[in-house]
Design a protein around this nucleic acid. Structure first.
Lengths: 146, 146
DNA sequence: ATACTTGCAAATGATTTGCCAGTGT
DNA sequence: ACACTGGCAAATCATTTGCAAGTAT
């Protein structure tokens, strides 16, 4: 977060209380958070602020490469600081569980796609959707093979 | 479309003019269409109808397995009839181009993911995002290797 | 001092819902 | 006839924008 503030300064932006609050919540969260959650101060852990300002700050952070957002489902977009490093996301269509993976783990997959289709892809903005191991097994087991 | 109507009847639903219109537009479109596009009669090619009814009909079609929707970007959801078969989607983050692929083409990818992560995944609800071949090349070329 | 930021309200875009009149079966 | 549907308006949710007042530098 210190580095983020420095980078904002460096790129000619001002450090205001609302911006600090967004950064604080963003860095404190252990998973990507929505603008509204940030605006609500993460359930009171931080002081709350105006959603519009939160969106403006998040947009600034994305423009300066300090944050990213991901669409984990039909709800609001969720933001994470860039400092956590790029993550690829899996989301279970049945139990809603989210799993984050190191992009290196998916490198072979990306390569296979590049070879077969010529596309250079990522899974950090739209997740990989499907069934998590548990739900996949339950789906199989259902009906004992009937 | 005939089959869809039969299936709706079979599952105890009524066939009304608005429902026909949604089906017509859905089946006439050559790519997934938004509810608003359907409501607008696909630019006048069909009679227009109320967005709320369109959404209700689309929801019904999804419930009965006759249609699916995909999120191809930050815009509205886009719907396709189930009859076209499942498709996996690629979307280019730079030029917005969309490519649909036969899921069989991605079977090796799905298998690799299943082996490595235990997830059984699909790319028909959230697309695979990245750079299309052309944009990937341009991204490489930019700066002549600088 | 002055340009950048905020807060609040209102606008926008996508989608959902309530309700009563209309209609498929 | 009767329950299921549609139309229209209003509500909701996520996000953006306009603008006057506030503040970081």
């Amino acid at each position: 977060m210190r580095a983020a503030i420095a980078e904002l300064r460096r790129s000619g932006h001002r450090i205001s209380a609302p911006r600090r609050q967004v950064l604080e919540a963003l860095y404190a969260a252990s998973a990507p958070v929505s603008a509204d959650e940030i605006a609500g101060g993460l359930d009171g852990r931080f002081s709350s602020s105006d959603p519009a300002s939160v969106y403006r700050t998040l947009e600034l952070l994305e423009r300066t490469g300090l944050a990213r957002h991901v669409h984990l489902g039909h709800g609001p977009g969720r933001y994470a600081p860039a400092s956590v490093g790029e993550r690829d996301y899996f989301v279970c269509e049945r139990c809603e569980q989210v799993r984050a993976a190191d992009p290196r783990a998916l490198e072979p997959v990306r390569e296979a796609i590049a070879r077969a289709f010529g596309w250079r892809v990522r899974f950090n903005h739209f997740p990989i959707a499907g069934l998590c191991p548990r739900c996949a097994e339950e789906a199989d087991g259902a009906g004992y093979g009937s």
